[in-house]
Write a protein that binds this DNA or RNA. Structure first.
Length: 672
DNA sequence: TGCTATGTTATTTTT
DNA sequence: TAACATAGCA
């Protein structure tokens, strides 16, 4: 018997050793999913399958890194030879490889969401468009078109205002992306998929290379990713999909729960294995989770079985309002810290909406409890870093007119909107990238001496920098020179409201340089271009991961997926948050109708994060949009047998005499 | 260019 | 309520 499944339960073992043909592993929360995936890869290798033929796809870099590490611990350095990456990084790799085969070797840039938005904002100026429309919503719909592989002219006409506007914008958007030689995240999936679908040799190449394919979090795949997988396994059907339909919480981002529900029709003659033994949570927590999720329809019917003992009862704590809720949680933590019942790092506070974190943060500070907030603004989203990145993108790829617009007058060098408009018009008429207008500034701008000089100065700067970057060594030095040349330091210190802010901004520029330096010292192929794509795909190690100390984790329910904690506080378990108000009353710009079942799954995900103890809280009333509102308990819990959790009510209850007295007082005030 | 007054909006955010 | 954006002004 293989050593890789000696200690597994029968279903886990079956999932590891079923290596041929389609296999769906429905792995409930805490059922040892990552263990099974990594063991399976090790087992494949033990069976003599070359690691080069194995592909494991995840959604996040974190998951990929974690898997890689666990695999390395099992099989050593050969773990490196397994292709273990995110969908997007796989797509990028395929795209690069295919372009290198063909004639098209032009460099390209990757647009993240901010870049996409900037692009749309730019377009919405030329394409006449109702300015009140929400660009984010339009972008989401354009993503929908892309993932359905629709060409702009194929988009069905629609009455819906947003759908209509998105369709109008879609063509212009595609053109712009082409002109910039830019690929967005959707393109990274769709383009390689289209290549495979259109060309049998291409399909054979990739399907032949990756003979055993694993996908993690299958419930989160969208329709394009499904098509990508279908093409990838077209030669052999060796697809192992691992996921849990009950944990599908990204439907609003295009994920299709249906994919995991209709697995057997997409990949016929496959096998389905249920991993239903839960090793994570105590019985009481699991019972509640099972009861909550059981009410959903359209799911693989299943129920987790507790491996652990019953544990202490789940609690629901009702407080007067949002502030007292936060305060109560913080005080309870302070208490635990003193009693040493839990270390702070073992505690998480989860909530549906970030807004709930605010009250909590101040309550925690008041109790001197350190915390970390999962997610939050990324380091590369900071303005100063983004500006610098735009310069570098432009150096690598002059056709990226968006980056050019971003930096052409930053720091200010006298190229104002009028000058820019003239240059843009010239380029527009000739269907050329904006950059190509710059060397012609003399003839385009005519009289304006100042502007001409400014543009010439900018061109000289870019030429100089590009030359420095291309001369073999010293990429970081070249960037440092660029920073000096543009006077970035002075600009940061002038622009900032306080010295402290400036110091911090300047420090992030330094951090960026350090990161770049480290990257360039890495393996041979490390270039500025690869660094930029890593930034776009969020693939760089987060250097300031400060989970060193003792701190409580604060996270949205979405951010908590895949995590687990001995003690979990689940905040705002109320109508309006769970399910969210927005789902019950969708705004006009929301795509499809609100999905109540996804809200229930979100609740389920929250509950199943808890290992030993779960405390849910809600407030009797809460400040919503500046108004105090009464809050009702979440429907996901009101219709459950009451022995599943204990309620603890901390709202102020007045005695009959007391309330009579209060009423009298009010009456007096009114009569006066 | 940059600041202030005013208006407006109110989830979730793996890449 | 409070954060953010935009417009208008200096």
């Amino acid at each position: 018997m293989s050593k890789w499944f000696a200690d597994l339960n029968p279903q886990q073992k079956e999932a590891v050793e079923t290596i041929e043909g389609p296999l769906l592993v429905l792995s409930g929360a805490g059922s040892g999913k990552t263990l099974v995936i990594t063991r399976r890869i090790a087992y494949l290798m033990e069976q003599g399958i070359a690691p080069e033929h194995i592909l494991a796809v995840t959604f996040t870099n974190k998951a990929a890194a974690e898997m890689r590490e666990r695999l390395r611990a099992m099989v050593g350095h050969t773990a490196k030879k397994v292709t273990l990456s995110t969908f997007h990084s796989l797509g990028l790799q395929m795209l690069r490889a295919e372009r290198n085969r063909g004639k098209n070797k032009k460099p390209f840039v990757i647009f993240d969401q901010a870049d996409q938005m900037a692009c749309l904002r730019e377009l919405s100026r030329t394409v006449r468009l109702d300015r009140s429309l929400d660009l984010g919503s339009l972008l989401a719909r354009i993503g929908g078109f892309k993932n359905a592989f629709l060409d702009p002219e194929q988009v069905p006409a629609s009455e819906d205002e947003y759908q209509h506007a998105a369709a109008t914008l879609y063509g212009a958007y595609c053109q712009a992306m082409e002109a910039y030689a830019a690929f967005d995240f959707d393109d990274l999936i769709c383009t390689p998929t289209r290549m495979m679908e259109r060309s049998a040799p291409c399909r054979r190449r990739w399907s032949g290379r990756f003979r055993y394919v694993l996908v993690d979090e299958y419930q989160d795949t969208n329709s394009a990713q499904l098509r990508m997988l279908k093409a990838l396994v077209s030669l052999h059907s060796n697809l192992c999909a691992v996921g849990d339909d009950d944990q599908s919480i990204y439907g609003w981002r295009g994920a299709e729960v249906r994919n995991i529900l209709k697995f057997d029709s997409d990949f016929p003659a496959g096998k389905v294995i249920y991993l239903m033994r839960n090793y994570r949570s105590v019985g009481s927590v699991l019972a509640l989770a099972n009861a909550v999720i059981a009410k959903n329809e359209n799911r693989h019917p299943k129920s987790m079985v507790a491996h652990r003992a019953e544990g202490s009862a789940v609690k629901m704590v009702v407080n007067e309002d949002g502030e007292s809720e936060a305060e109560w949680v913080a005080k309870r933590m302070a208490h635990y810290r003193e009693e040493k019942k839990y270390r702070l790092s073992q505690i998480a506070v989860l909530y549906r909406s970030n807004r709930l974190a605010r009250a909590l943060e101040s309550a925690l500070r008041a109790q001197n409890i350190t915390y970390r907030v999962v997610g939050g603004q990324s380091y590369f989203d900071r303005k100063e870093v983004k500006d610098l990145i735009a310069y570098l993108k432009l150096c690598v790829h002059p056709a990226d007119s968006l980056s050019l617009r971003r930096v052409i007058n930053w720091p200010a060098r006298g190229i104002g909107p009028v000058t820019l408009a003239r240059l843009a018009e010239w380029a527009e008429q000739r269907q050329m990238p904006l950059y190509s207008a710059l060397p012609k500034a003399d003839q385009i701008l005519g009289s304006s001496d100042r502007a001409r000089k400014a543009v010439a100065g900018f061109v000289a700067l870019m030429d100089k920098t590009r030359k420095r970057l291309s001369t073999h060594a010293a990429v970081p030095e070249a960037v440092r020179d660029l920073i000096d040349d543009i006077g970035m330091k002075a600009d940061i210190f002038n622009a900032a409201s306080s010295g402290k802010v400036a110091e911090r901004r300047w420090a992030s520029v330094q951090d960026f340089l350090d990161g770049l330096g480290r990257h360039c010292q890495g393996p041979g192929s490390a270039t500025l271009a690869t660094y930029l794509s890593k930034i776009a795909l969020n693939e760089l190690e987060k250097d300031q991961e400060q989970d060193s100390g003792e701190q409580v984790t604060l996270s949205t329910l979405h951010g908590a997926k895949g995590l687990e904690f001995p003690l979990v506080f689940l905040l705002g378990v109320e109508e309006g948050f769970l399910p969210h108000e927005r789902v019950m009353n969708p705004a006009s710009n929301d795509a499809g109708g609100g999905d109540l079942s996804e809200e229930r799954r979100l609740c389920y995900v929250g509950i199943t994060r808890a290992k030993d103890e779960l405390v849910m809280t809600r407030a009797a009333q809460r400040m919503i949009h500046g108004q105090m509102r009464d809050r009702a308990p979440s429907r996901f819990l009101t219709d459950l047998p009451k022995e599943l959790f204990e309620t603890e009510d901390h709202t102020i209850v007045l005695s009959p005499e007391e309330s009579k007295k209060r009423l009298e007082e009010i009456r007096k005030m009114l009569s006066r």
